[in-house]
Design a protein around this nucleic acid. Structure first.
Length: 805
DNA sequence: AAGTAAATTTTTTTT
DNA sequence: AAATTTACTT
């Protein structure tokens, strides 16, 4: 196969320039991912570079996954002994730190825990409390954000403190918390997301041997979305490419949308200064969109002052005008979108549709309207499976078993399920821990040791409860140790964390629908763990890291007919049909950005990203009313609408719209047009009451966990399935059953040992399926089953309760 | 100590 | 409107 056949001359040059620093300025839709992937293939097949010497870094797991897939296709048939590492910044750092963090000499051990945003915020809250500060006046979330921003700028607690001006009380508080926060994380052997980058950079700076090691390992480095890199990421890349200088970066300053994460556009603008030998290649031909769509996008981005002037061109046909719809209220907007999607699907099923919004909170109405129209859709982001309380609880047990110093994990589970350790006892425990400056786990060990009776204000009941808890965790630790020494499946420990801790039983005793749903989620967690069984000794570690680092982003299914997501998530993707919704002042651009010219420019770039996702058809919609915090308020059209060339827009609104006024009026400003229009509108009609639960459900979760080589699948009308599947059944029978359950009723004993590949089975939730693979023996037998409409599932035979058909 | 009722807050965007 | 936190009861 000629890998160059589909490339233009600039793209070919970008692929063939393998040595030395290279900057590829790639406009939207200019085939940037294709260049990167072909480049990787070229290095391996033509330049004989060993795959493991290649590193490609992206920002999201979704981008990494997609790149991996495409490289795989290009390299199909080659007999390779290794694979290039295609990873996110954060995963790369975890990989390095799990090997070498001990060289950092900061007391961190390889078994470190990763704290997510939620965990970090809890630490901040605890710090405030211990500093005797009120968390009403000092919002923990804001403080956490301030610390995170500082870290991403490359500042540590000391640097931050030195910059606090006299009299700035707020910053003084942040500085204090910052210092304490870092100390806490250190004693807990925990790293937050930002630390992953920071500690890796520090390690590389400090240890020339480590630096050498990774320089020799990664001889060719590619960075995607380079315009979104921040100071830390830049430092990391600089260290890694120190020796070889074989760095190539791809980016587009017009698509920089992560300023809030301290992305520094100077990284891309100053690339040539930092690497004087750098070669620069421009990719300006757009292969994705119609000229009309590009013209609209260009008209908007032109309003940015800080922008390199450049214009994309396309050989694609001009295309139809973009469509516009003004809805009376947000519900009407959602109904319009759903009915148009239906229309599109009737015409041509193959055209994938995306509904893009500024904030996750906007998704609900669109979900509802699509559901009512019985249109299958896929939603990306929002609430993550791993953010569910029950999932976090069980993960916390696992984290604790691997790193008992993890105070946050310990606090999360010590009284979950309730063990009679209430606020009083826990306060005392924390006080005790603080007074000796050690972790809670060590403190518990001290308190419960009969040989060293400590003077603590604990009731004997609490002491007994602590002892029981300690035993529970020790058992779990033992399980983890056994696991590491044998080839036992990861799922076994996960089940132990659910069952042996009493967690599942307490849920069963609740006997409510909600508890039932939680149990189902935990079954999915066990199913997810099955996938890690083959990764031997680090399986559990990897599994928990995955839970911390992987968001719902990679739930994205590139073949789903309808996808709902935020504009941020849509970056790098393309769709034949795009709905850009909620184009209202305060929504898009967001109210938080409207007063700062810098941030407004970022919003504009965001709008540019959204528009350039569209290949053929673009709809832009807005509503005249919107509910904010439960109150319905008047909404004004986005200024971005006003920046679009009006002659390229076709108005689909049912009655007189902002657009028609804007067109007919030269004297009136568009804002005035809106007020004039509003004066004519009828009183608010009664709102359609629809209060069905819109999301959640285990099928969404099952979806999430599906890994590569799994049939993609959209979410079905969950409401209907809820009604028809009256008795929800899951793959993990043991978790669901009655609180007290006779062991002999385990499905393994009921299921005949005849589920060989090729046989047809029935699963109570997924329906009829075909057994594809059978692995393991006895209780550990795992089956890979393909369920039409649900894709492939890996199930533990013992728990799956499969009926032969 | 645990469950319930009342009060308060929440919305950027992501690893 | 919904979710989370706090205050109050048993």
């Amino acid at each position: 196969m000629d890998i160059f056949s589909s490339l233009n001359s600039q793209q070919v040059e970008a692929v063939k320039t393998t040595e030395g620093p290279l900057l590829i300025l790639a406009g939207a839709g200019s085939g940037k991912t294709r260049v990167i992937t072909v480049r990787i293939a070229y290095l391996i097949t033509e330049k004989q570079v060993a795959p493991y010497n290649i590193l490609a870094v992206t920002f999201t797991n979704k981008a990494a996954g997609e790149m991996r897939e495409r490289v795989e296709v290009l390299l199909k048939g080659q007999k390779l002994h290794s694979a290039p590492l295609i990873s996110t910044f954060h995963s790369l750092c975890v990989r390095i730190l799990r090997q070498d963090i001990e060289n950092l000499d900061e007391g961190y051990k390889k078994s470190f825990t990763i704290y997510d945003t939620d965990d970090s915020q809890k630490v901040v809250k605890a710090c405030l409390k211990d500093l005797g500060l009120d968390d009403k006046q000092n919002n923990p979330r804001n403080i956490r954000n301030a610390i995170s921003s500082a870290k991403n700028r490359g500042e540590d607690a000391e640097m931050y403190a030195s910059k606090v001006e006299y009299g700035d009380g707020k910053k003084a508080v942040i500085a204090k918390v910052f210092k304490m926060y870092d100390e806490r994380l250190n004693t807990a052997n925990a790293l937050d997301f930002d630390d992953l980058l920071i500690k890796t950079v520090k390690l590389l700076r400090k240890s020339p041997e480590t630096r050498e090691k990774y320089n020799d390992r990664y001889k060719y480095i590619l960075v995607d979305e380079y315009q979104d890199t921040n100071a830390l990421q830049f430092a990391l890349i600089s260290f890694l490419t120190e020796k070889q200088q074989n760095i190539s970066v791809v980016g587009d300053d017009a698509q920089s949308i992560y300023g809030f994460r301290q992305a520094d556009i100077r990284n891309i603008l100053g690339f040539e200064e930092h690497f004087p030998d750098a070669k620069v290649i421009l990719l300006e031909q757009n292969y994705r969109s119609t000229q009309t769509i590009l013209d609209v996008a260009h008209a908007i981005i032109e309003n940015n002052v800080n922008q390199k002037k450049k214009k994309l061109w396309t050989a694609n046909p001009g295309g139809e005008r973009i469509f516009y719809y003004q809805a009376y209220d947000a519900d009407g907007e959602a109904r319009f979108v759903a009915s148009k999607i239906e229309e599109h699907q009737r015409r041509s099923l193959s055209d994938r549709v995306a509904v893009l919004y500024r904030t996750n909170a906007q998704s609900r109405l669109f979900e509802e309207s699509l559901r009512r129209m019985r249109i299958a859709y896929n939603i990306v982001g929002g609430f993550s499976f791993y953010e569910r309380a029950e999932v976090k609880d069980v993960i916390a047990y696992l984290k604790l078993a691997m790193n008992p110093f993890d105070d946050i994990a310990l606090l999360r589970v010590i009284n979950t399920p309730t063990r009679g350790l209430g606020k009083t006892s826990l306060d005392e425990l924390q006080n005790q821990a603080r007074s000796v400056g050690s972790s809670l786990w060590m403190t518990i060990t001290g308190i419960t040791d009969p040989a060293f009776p400590t003077a603590v204000n604990l009731t004997s009941r609490a002491r007994t409860a602590l002892l029981a808890f300690k035993k529970t965790i020790e058992n779990l630790i033992e399980k983890v140790r056994e696991l590491a020494e044998s080839d036992r499946p990861v799922s076994e420990v996960v089940i132990a964390a659910i069952e042996d801790t009493g967690y599942a039983n307490s849920l069963r005793l609740e006997n409510t629908d909600e508890a039932q749903a939680r149990l189902e989620n935990l079954e999915e967690l066990v199913n997810a763990a099955v996938d890690y069984d083959r990764q031997e000794e680090n399986g559990l570690r990897d599994f928990v890291d995955h839970a911390a680092l992987v968001s719902d982003t990679d739930k994205y299914d590139g073949t789903a007919p309808v996808t709902l997501m935020t504009v941020h998530m849509a970056k790098g993707l393309e769709f034949p049909v795009v709905f850009l919704v909620g184009l209202e002042d305060g929504i898009f651009p967001h109210s938080r950005s409207i007063n700062d010219p810098k941030e407004l420019e970022e919003e504009r770039r965001l709008a540019y990203v959204a528009i350039t996702r569209a290949e053929k058809v673009l709809y832009v919609t807005h509503s005249m009313r919107r509910r904010v915090y439960g109150e319905e308020i008047a909404a004004e059209p986005s200024q971005f609408l006003n920046e679009m060339p009006l002659e390229l827009i076709e108005d689909l609104s049912q009655s007189a719209s902002w657009l028609s006024y804007a067109r007919s009026t030269t004297s009136m400003t568009s804002k005035a047009a809106v007020s004039a229009l509003r004066g004519e509108t009828a009183p608010v009609k009664p709102k359609n009451i629809y209060s069905g639960k819109t999301y959640n459900s285990s099928e969404a979760i099952a979806e999430f966990f599906k890994k590569k080589n799994v049939e993609p699948q959209s979410r079905e009308d969950a409401e209907e399935s809820k009604e028809t599947v009256s008795q929800p059944v899951s793959s993990l029978d043991s978790l669901k059953g009655a609180a007290v359950r006779d062991e002999t009723s385990h499905s393994a004993l009921r299921t005949p040992h005849s589920l060989v590949p090729g046989s047809h089975v029935r699963h109570e939730k997924y329906g009829r399926g075909l057994v594809l693979r059978r692995e393991g023996v006895g209780d550990n037998t795992k089956l890979t089953v393909s369920f039409p409409g649900f894709g492939q599932k890996k199930l533990i035979e013992k728990f799956a309760n499969l009926q032969k058909e």
